[in-house]
Write a protein that binds this DNA or RNA. Sequence first.
DNA 1: TCTGGGGTCCTAGGACCC
DNA 2: TCTGGGGTCCTAGGACCC
Length: 422
Amino acid sequence: MATFALVDCNNFYASCERLFQPSLRERPVIVLSNNDGCVIARSNEAKTLGIAMGAPMFKIRKLVETHDIAVRSSNYALYGDISERVMSVLGSSAPGHEIYSIDECFLDLDRLAVPDLTEWCRRLRNQTLQWTGIPVSIGVGPTKTLAKLANRLAKKSAKAGGVLDLVHHPDWVEAALRKTSVGDVWGVGRRWAAMLEERAIVTAHDFAKAPDGWVRQRMGVVGLRTVHELRGIVCNGLEEQQTPRQTTCCSRTFGTVIYDKLEVQDAIMSFVERAAEKVRHAGQVAGAVQLFMRTDPFAQAAPQKSGSGSATFKRATSDTRDIGAAVLRIFDRIWREGYGWRKAGVLLLDLAPDGDAPASLFDEMEAPDGLMTAIDQINARYGRGTARLGLTRKDRQWQMRREHLSPSFTTKWSEIPVAKIG
DNA sequence: TCTGGGGTCCTAGGACCC
DNA sequence: TCTGGGGTCCTAGGACCC
């Protein structure tokens, strides 16, 4: 039987924040989304206090003050760095692994010959904690979906000690399925959960028993795969080598509503810079670009509007100037005066590896002038944004709020923590 | 006053072709 | 005027994930 483990970092962002600020270990911690808008990570204590995932900050301010909850703006440079450390510990522990997200990793334990898998998992857990400072939970199952499910239970149950193995305890599977509500199954989101519950399919166990034809019709092949995986039939294998991205996006909600065209243009041009940088870093070029913008959906009284447009490049590119010029044309076309714009974004589409981008037949190849490479090198050395094209102005009113940002402990020399002895 | 950002995959429907 | 089946490609939108 196949044996998958899912290793999941506990409250990952909150754990990262605590890593370099031990004083946070005695306090509940929450981490906020971009713009300090809503809660995206909570320590256990914060969960116990009733802070919901995704709760808007302005609605829980009272709770935060009352319980002296530590608040942090999200710091992805820090989390990405810690994630790499955790993944390298996990990756070297098992015959095969797949980094599934910033805080999750599937392991292939098929070929791992150990007498007691639970014991082995406990040791991996301790080792990860010791080497990286990040606590993890481990679920083991015959499919990825069941490993996920086991992981949830491992995290919730006190006596599991952070590890639950459903492969070597097949008699636990049914109880595990009964204990899990259908909406907590991997692959079942809000919409489908509501649809299923309406039809008295409430637990993962109910779902696993649903007839194939019905599931196929209501939820397509994706839903059917999930049902099969709950029954222990492998539909999703381990994807060891990560496939290159097909799209890259840079979008932001502005710190405030913006009416001024140049102001919006400014923001958009900085998204272009960032998105182009990303694809160059991945060694890719984009075949097309899309721009979108919208007003504030929460400002119900204000007139709502959204706009978008796209352009295809004659020759795929990662040059900020090409992309910027195309986006500017789209922007002029879709801009509407008199609306309070709140969010915009730039998507780069049809990404392909640089080098074998199909040139159009009659296009003379222009040699790259090296400007982009030079800019990237300067920024890699002296920090993002050191060298930029003159596409944007200095005052950036659209910029997001990050009022609770922790230092870049691991990614900036100037902010590295200092240990004083004596 | 204040509600994130960045992805993937699948499906339905339209345009077009033989 | 009306009449068919079968295929591909593309796009928009909807579902999901973290």
